[in-house]
């Protein structure tokens, strides 16, 4: 058996041995191992994919939440703003109305006072007139108590008439 010349017997046995190993391993080792590896790789891949998906969903949810919170904040601010504005408006309106009312009341009061004053003045005038009349009557009664006085007056009156 030379060192560099292949021998028939050894070729036969090594071919047989290799084929037996190839057959047995292909059937009972490589097939299950490769199938299991493939399956595991697939399951890892799908797990990674679903994890990625979950992460994306989480991110989406978070973004959505943030958006909602943001919108809520804006809405709240708006509401507060509007409320304060409304309050201001109401106060303003009330003030204006109160002022107007107060003015009206004052005017009415003034008018009433004026009317009363006038009535009182009329009354006073009447009273003064009556008092004057009474005073005049009394004076006249006293002045013209005598017939001479009455004659004198008549004379005087007659004198005026003549002059005219």
């Amino acid at each position: 058996m030379g060192l560099i010349t292949p021998g028939l017997g050894l070729i036969f046995w090594s071919a047989l041995g290799f084929l037996i190993v190839l057959f047995l391993l292909s059937k009972y080792a490589w097939k299950p191992i490769l199938a299991a590896l493939d399956e595991r790789e697939k399951s890892i891949e799908s797990a990674l994919k679903s994890a990625e998906q979950a992460r994306n969903e989480m991110a989406n949810l978070k973004a959505e939440n943030e958006k909602i919170v943001h919108e809520a904040k804006i809405e709240r601010d708006e509401m507060l703003h509007r409320a304060s504005e409304t309050a201001k408006q109401i106060i303003e309106e009330a003030r204006v109305k109160a002022q107007a009312d107060a003015g009206k009341i004052l005017e009415n009061a003034k008018a009433a006072i004026e009317t009363e004053k006038r009535a009182a003045l009329e009354e006073m005038k009447v009273q003064v007139g009556m008092l004057s009349l009474e005073v005049a009557e009394k004076l006249l009664k006293k002045k013209f108590a005598t017939d001479a006085a009455q004659q004198a007056l008549v004379d005087e009156l007659l004198k005026d008439v003549k002059m005219n």
Binding site: M1, G7, L8, G9, L10, F12, W13, S14, G17, I20, V21
Partner: peptide
């Protein structure tokens, strides 16, 4: 010659 030589015996061990 199909003898189980030293190398063939070795191959059986390897197998």
């Amino acid at each position: 010659d199909f003898s189980i030589t030293k190398n063939v015996a070795m191959m059986f061990i390897i197998m």
